[in-house]
Amino acid sequence: MNNFIKIKNLYKIFGNNCTEALNSVKTGISKEELLEKTNCVLGLNDINLNIPKGKIHVIMGLSGSGKSTLIRHLNRLIEPTFGEITIDGVNVLELNNKELLEYRQKNMSMVFQKFALFPHKTILENISYGLMVQNISEEIYQEKSQFWLKRVGLEGYDNYYPNQLSGGMQQRVGLARALATDAEILLMDEAFSALDPLIRSEMQDVLIDLQLELKKTIVFITHDLDEALKIGERISILRDGSIVQDDNPQKIILNPSDNYVSDFIKDINRSRVIKAKSIMTNFVSIKKENVPIIDSEMVLEEVLQEITKTKNYYVLVKNKKDKIIGKITLNQLLTGIQRPRKEIEKYA
């Protein structure tokens, strides 16, 4: 199930009479040149992406990089100019209108940046919406919606209207509305970006908590690196409609593929993000006296706490099965926390 969602050679060019422009794009013309020559806007440029089942996949990029465009191709709110999208073996682009509606109803649901709740419907009606359009009997959708209302912590708000709720609460409704249909895929378009930092962090925890239990395939869009690192099991970075790096979060921080990516990560606190397993050297050993053993998922800041307690200035790393798999010396630790020299020169 490694290639649950498969995107192949996906192009999107906005504008009228722009099918011709595709050929120029394929020959490698830049976004600016294209706009000048043909008045067409390049939205997505040769996207190839595999998204595994049951993981949170983050797509990150600045505004205008095409991330919202990309996510809307998955449920075909936007039609591609060229390319292939296969989800669980189904070629999404070949669905006819009726099949597409059913596909949206059953297989994926979406959470929006500005919540996009129905202002004229009550909270419970909002959560029921995805089930209601499927003409499911009222008894069943009432029960399901009540369940999700409780699950996101809004019990008792059934008959309120969205604008009577705070932003954070509204997005809980948005989340419940998306989860109520039991769709396998959850598309989250900057879902927490409009919330203030504390509420955002709280919502991230809600999502992580739900994901532990639900194991949905989540495509999460954000422009916020901290958010991407907190919830993403894999991160794709978009720039001007192309993917510049698609990797796990640790590798993105340690090996940014180009300046654009290193720009992104320049302000993060490395010691709080990088994990022990990413910098350790492989090393098989038995337990030693006076040498602390740490978990491989521990972040460097905590490793530092442990390592300073010892005389030898090194620690052993164990995996989840309590087996020792590596070690970290003080030197390695410092190199890990330190920003690469070329970055320092660049931003000095």
Binding site: L77, R104, M110, A116, F118, Y129, V133, R177
Partner: peptide
């Protein structure tokens, strides 16, 4: 945005018209 939300849940033309 609200209309897009209705669409993303697979509402058809009439559901969008009379429901939203």
């Amino acid at each position: 945005d609200v209309l897009e939300a209705a669409e993303s849940f697979g509402a058809n033309y009439w559901q969008k018209l009379f429901g939203v």
